[in-house]
């Protein structure tokens, strides 16, 4: 087996007397989709925050490509190639698709006289190419994102997350706000993300979605790892058992 891309060891996080994470180990390998599941308050959000740099753990180590890293902010995480797509659709409705894709890393001119100015042609070209390669059904990258459907908006957020040399994409409930057909499109998009060799962490309450696209399922319960299952060998009842604590023996994959 190859070395993990991202490894968490003994992650501890307390909020006052509450043990949000109580010594969690987690591995993520290149080119796999890991489902992160658990009941409300199991520690999913905290674990996502630790991985995305939004929160620093009280104890434990994070290894990225085998080297220990400290993630003090989402920018630092992004800097090494970990991008998070947030549940609340982190897109700007009145900017068009291209502007959203390039927000915060705009392409400017190359010469001394235009290096302060946007190179919109280059960005539109690049955005159109990127969107087309991901097979996101969009008429034009010049549409304001606010006028797109929920699924298309989520797809734009995902497309932004996986562009420009990302290695790990964390998705927090990407299908929670979407209808059946819309979810379909986003799930297909996540599969294509995997085909590119990126590793994906999928946080979801929707077990059918988790079972459909993940390779492994990581179950958190009361701040601890309740078990890791290989998706195609697992049954829904096993996962539910681990989530609820009915089944305590942790299957180790």
């Amino acid at each position: 087996m190859t070395a993990p891309l991202l490894s968490l060891r003994g992650i501890l996080k307390h909020y006052g007397p509450v043990h949000a994470l109580d010594g969690v180990d987690f591995d993520l390998f290149p080119g796999e989709i890991v489902g992160l599941v658990g009941d409300n308050g199991a520690g999913k959000s905290t674990l996502v925050k630790v991985m995305s740099g939004a929160t620093e753990p009280d104890a434990g180590t994070i290894l990225f490509e085998g080297k220990p890293v400290v993630l003090r902010s989402p920018q630092e995480a992004r800097g090494i190639g970990i991008e998070t797509v947030y549940q609340d659709l982190a897109v700007v409705p009145w900017l068009d698709v291209e502007a959203n894709l390039f927000l915060g890393r705009e392409i400017t001119g190359a010469s001394w006289w235009n290096r302060w100015f946007l190179n919109k042609n280059a960005m539109r070209r690049e955005a159109a190419r990127h969107i087309a390669s991901l097979q996101v059904g969009l008429k034009s990258v010049r549409q304001p994102v606010g006028l797109l459907s929920g699924g298309q908006r989520q797809s734009v957020a995902v497309a932004r997350a996986i562009s420009w040399g990302r290695k790990v994409v964390i998705m927090d409930e990407p299908t929670a706000a979407l209808g059946v057909r819309e979810s379909r499109g986003v799930l297909d998009l996540i599969k294509r993300v995997k085909e590119r060799g990126l590793a994906v962490v999928l946080v979801s309450h929707n077990l059918p979605h988790v079972f459909e696209i993940t390779d492994r399922i990581f179950v958190l319960r009361q701040g601890r790892a309740a078990g890791t299952l290989v998706t195609h060998e697992a049954h829904v009842s096993e996962v539910v058992g681990l989530i609820t604590g009915v089944r305590v023996s942790a299957a180790v994959a």
Binding site: R78, P93, W94, L103, L118, K120
Partner: peptide, 27 residues
């Protein structure tokens, strides 16, 4: 020109359009 042809201008529109997203993007 500043508002329509520089990164600054886009960041202004982003800030007003979705402040949380703009912060999460690291601006």
């Amino acid at each position: 020109i500043a508002l329509n042809h520089t990164p600054f201008g886009r960041h202004v529109y982003a800030l007003g359009g979705n402040e949380a997203a703009t912060r999460l993007l690291g601006l």
